[in-house]
């Protein structure tokens, strides 16, 4: 079902890699120029009327962000994930809030969490979850949560940290009589 859809649209939208995951789910890569025409076609002519989610994957080793637009066609019980690869040094993307108003929320989150900007999206520059955040966008791979936690939150005075294995050994065998 998904393969035939891909075959029909491949040349028209210059589609890239196709990944059939299940009979009712496939992923396809598209260029930035073809994204909007493809989404419009899928929504208006192929029945993919429900924007399930819009999110990003950070492929830092390839210097790329992957944007995933997941669409659902309820009538035919199928989903398509549209992948778009965005260079990490050019993180500006076209908004699709005019196609699905709810996309504005996803785009606002992506700007805050990944630093991917959607300049025309409503209220995209308003803080969403992280009010007053000044560090790098935290869902980027180079953001180290452990380092951030250690630098931001001081250790509680009097707290001791133990290596679990060593600690339990000391508790169980205080005289060093571990024969097991």
């Amino acid at each position: 079902m998904m393969q035939s859809l891909y075959d029909r649209l491949k040349d028209r939208f210059n589609l890239g890699e196709f990944t059939g995951r299940r009979a009712d789910l496939a992923f396809v890569t598209v260029s930035r120029e073809q994204l909007r025409p493809l989404l419009l076609h899928l929504r208006d002519l192929e029945g993919f009327t429900h924007l399930v989610l819009l999110t990003a994957v950070d492929w830092i080793e390839d210097d790329t962000f992957q944007l995933t637009y997941l669409l659902n066609d309820r009538a035919r019980a199928r989903d398509i994930g549209v992948r778009l690869m965005l260079p990490r040094d050019d993180t500006q993307m076209d908004s699709i809030h005019d196609l699905w108003p709810t996309a504005a929320t996803y785009q606002r989150e992506l700007r805050e969490m990944f630093g991917i900007d959607f300049p025309d999206s409503p209220r995209v520059n308003e803080d969403f979850i992280l009010e007053g955040w000044v560090d790098i966008p935290p869902y980027r791979r180079e953001f180290d949560t452990l380092r951030f936690a250690r630098e931001t939150y001081p250790e509680r005075p009097g707290r001791e940290t133990h290596d679990p294995a060593t600690y339990m050994k000391q508790q169980l065998y205080p005289d060093g009589e571990d024969n097991g």
Partner: peptide, 19 residues
């Protein structure tokens, strides 16, 4: 790989996109 799995929870569509 990547996939999306959904279910119908009491509030609507619940799904996980896993890469």
């Amino acid at each position: 790989g990547e996939t999306y799995v959904r279910g119908e929870c009491s509030r609507g569509e619940y799904g996980y996109y896993l890469v």
